[in-house]
Amino acid sequence: MADKYDLDRFINDSRFLEYVFEGKHKSYWADYLLRYPENLADFTKAEEWLRSWKFKTHTTSKEKYASYLKKFKDSIYIDSAYEKQVKPAKSADMTWLLKIAAVVVLAIFSIGLVVFLHQQQEIIEVAQEESLPAKVVKTAGRKMKPAFMLSDGTFVRLNSESSIEFPEKFDSLQREVILKGEAFFEVAPDVNRPFIIYCDEMLITVLGTSFNIRSYADDKRSHVAVKSGKVLVRKSDDQPEESKLLEIGEMISLYKDSQKLVKSSFDLEQMFGWTEGKIVFKDADVSEIVKKLERWYDVDINVKLSQSIQRGYSGRFSNVALEYILEGIGFSLGFQYEINGRNVKIYD
């Protein structure tokens, strides 16, 4: 019969304890037992002994837990909306200092970058002041994905062939912008001034959150996808009460032929990948691939396939040359390609 000192060998072995409590080293101990089957009894006893008792989870009454959870949720949701008010005065002072410092650093950085980019002759001026001095229109051509901040601190990244119109400075009542195409927004929280986006046929109201809107005139549907916070969406001709509330991880699509708003979930990378320079395809057909690549690389793609390819393509690319992508997709879907400057030909 095994005595306690035989068990000690295992109990003193940290690899054994890690096996029992953390589930590690399983293959090590399997090997060990294969090699020394005579130790199996001790091994089993040591393990059973260690597992023979455990600690109970403390139970809090449901009501009490619910009230604490509510208190916590209220704190953080209110906090993110009224950022400054919840924090104690002292740290608020510090935050302001930090914010000012950040703005100064940002300003220096942006001037430096703009100067640098101008020297490089790589930037194309996208903003043009209109006759009304207060309005600014930014347009991103193909290949471009400019990112910038609006006067309230809202971060915007425009996708290619998109434009946005906004006042140089927002007024004190509300923040309104007009979008054509696709853009990613991270709206600065401000409960007193809702942020409203008008696009083709939708009207999107937010307080502070990040989300993606896609509303290209030549797409069959437009959509709004929410990455954080909450967003209200309605069709332009709907009453405000008819707005649909979108929460994190949800998207809503407006089908242009039926004029119906449909809620669904979405793939985070596919939706937001472009903001980080990733091209993501998910079960994409040739026309979708072509449209995306034309915008991204500023090329014209001429498709000459004897019969259409039914299969969808899924894959992702991060900052790579067009040849590389065409090679990959072509291999997968079975087509050839030819690049001639800005003209690309796809054929069997």
């Binding site: 950085f109 930014k138 140089e168």
Partner: peptide, 11 residues
């Protein structure tokens, strides 16, 4: 003016 803030913040 706003166009000068046209930078990639890479946030």
């Amino acid at each position: 003016s706003i166009d000068k803030t046209n930078i990639d913040l890479n946030r």
